[in-house]
């Protein structure tokens, strides 16, 4: 299956379609960190929120690059389950590369600072919380992007609608006082946690929430793929 993951990633990179989401991510991060310095955990929490739609879009592009007939050829060769898992794995790996860029980005541009006040978190703790916040976003974004992909959504219009609704809904439903925060991945709650008191129980709870949401959306993706044939 690693060969199929490689061929998927190679197709994504060689078509040049990886450039658009990468540029969008860099521009967004540039705007985010252009306003001044912040504590790492706080800055990374917001970075994870803004990266969510970018990673979902990147996933959709990666999965859509492969022609439908080529995807079927892969199914015949390795089986349906492996073909689907290989696509998700390739998207996950691509998302991790983007996350790595996002984690490194603020340091050369001076977007983050070390502890200033006595109560500020140390840089390693801030980095760890930032890494956690970004890793929480990866499965949720890959799941949303997969659900919006052509093989799942069918028509291009449906895919864009899923992506837009998912991206906007994740922010709107995550606002404080939302009536149905559980309908969205806990991006906003994670950002609030990294900026405030990150108790272990809260971290565990948000991790479970993010994984459960991702699992539900992955389930939807697999169901749609099955229905699409």
């Amino acid at each position: 299956m690693s060969a199929l993951v490689r061929i998927r990633l190679a197709g994504f990179l060689r078509t040049g379609r990886a450039v658009a989401p990468l540029l969008a991510g860099l521009v967004t991060l540039g705007i985010l960190y252009g306003g001044g310095r912040a504590q790492p955990a706080e800055a990374y929490g917001v970075s994870a929120v803004v990266l969510f739609p970018v990673l979902a879009w990147q996933t959709k592009i990666l999965l859509d690059v492969e022609p439908d007939v080529q995807r079927r050829l892969a199914q015949v060769t390795v089986g349906v389950a492996r073909e689907r898992f290989a696509g998700l794995l390739a998207a996950g790996l691509a998302a991790l590369v983007t996350v790595a860029v996002a984690l490194l980005f603020p340091w050369p541009v001076g977007g983050v600072s070390g502890p200033v006040d006595p109560g500020d978190r140390s840089i390693p703790v801030g980095l760890a919380l930032g890494l956690w916040a970004h890793l929480l976003v990866v499965p949720a974004a890959v799941a949303l992007g997969a659900l919006a992909s052509r093989a799942s959504a069918g028509g291009a219009g449906y895919g864009v609608a899923v992506l837009a609704l998912g991206g906007v809904g994740a922010v709107v439903l995550g606002l404080t006082g939302s009536v149905a925060p559980w309908l969205a991945p806990p991006l906003m709650a994670t950002a609030r946690t990294t900026a405030g008191d990150a108790a272990a129980l809260t971290v565990l709870g948000l991790s479970g929430w993010a994984l459960a949401w991702s699992a539900a959306v992955f389930g939807g993706y697999l169901w749609r793929r099955r229905a699409q044939g």
Binding site: A10, G11, R14, E66, P67, V69, Q70, R72, L73, V76
Partner: peptide
């Protein structure tokens, strides 16, 4: 092991 030759080969690939 199944070999499938589709009616139209998907040539729109960057390889």
């Amino acid at each position: 092991r199944v070999g499938w030759v589709p009616e139209r080969f998907p040539a729109d690939q960057p390889f």
